[in-house]
Amino acid sequence: MTALLRLKDVTRKFGGINAVNGVSLSIEKGEIVSVIGPNGAGKTTLFNLISGFLPVTTGSISVEGRDLAQVPAHKYVQLGIGRTFQNLALFKHGTVVDNILVGRHWQMKTSVIEAALHFGRSRREEIAARERVEEIIEFLEIEHVRDKVVGTLSYGQQKRVELGRALATNPKVLLLDEIVAGMNQEETEDIARFILDIREELGVAILLIEHDMHLVMDISDRVHALNFGRTITEGQPEDVRSHPGVIEAYLGSGGAEQQAGPDHAKATEAAL
């Protein structure tokens, strides 16, 4: 069976360093897989490779058996790859609605000339897109800011808009890069709920980069741990958490004074 998303021996070099080094990973429909690792482990680089931001140096990435090397970067979205960014990457002068609408771009066909005239297909498509966007806005509970310019929103709200924009692309795999970073407990729980609902209702597979260990332990089916671009281990959340290589990677990255113990998920989180 071909996996929804499969990375085979993927390596990415920047000059002399291997930011990602021989990573293999696969994810099936409806799975939630977390990628963890200390700062600079290569997690975001991994996402950049999967979403076509950067080409791989060696190795291959495929979606439903299709090798991404053959596909231009702007068409990755059509294969079902959606992502959010670690540092917000919204269209900051647009409203919430405008931003999420851009996610519908590839699913619309209106040409420049049709758009300038605005009739027939152009109008029908626009209405259909907006209906979908309204559903997404309602789902993410951001109705009250729907017409606000995104630059004026709080960080947490902007993250939701980014999630909404990614959802609007109708992804099969959703790559979420530290989506709850900087959020409080309540906001984090909301996002966790959204992620579970997205999996439940849409069957979307989710690849999650996360430093919040509680979230990782709560919602992941599997966890993939990286350090210095290499896979340390992959497996059940509990097993990865207690894997000696993982503990060492985190303690080695400046948290050595923290004691590993029953409470060490919390400790590693604090270390980050």
Binding site: K75, Y76, F85, L90, K92, H105, R165
Partner: peptide, 10 residues
Amino acid sequence: DNDNAARVMG
């Protein structure tokens, strides 16, 4: 506003 994000949107 953000050409990188635009490309990811297709």
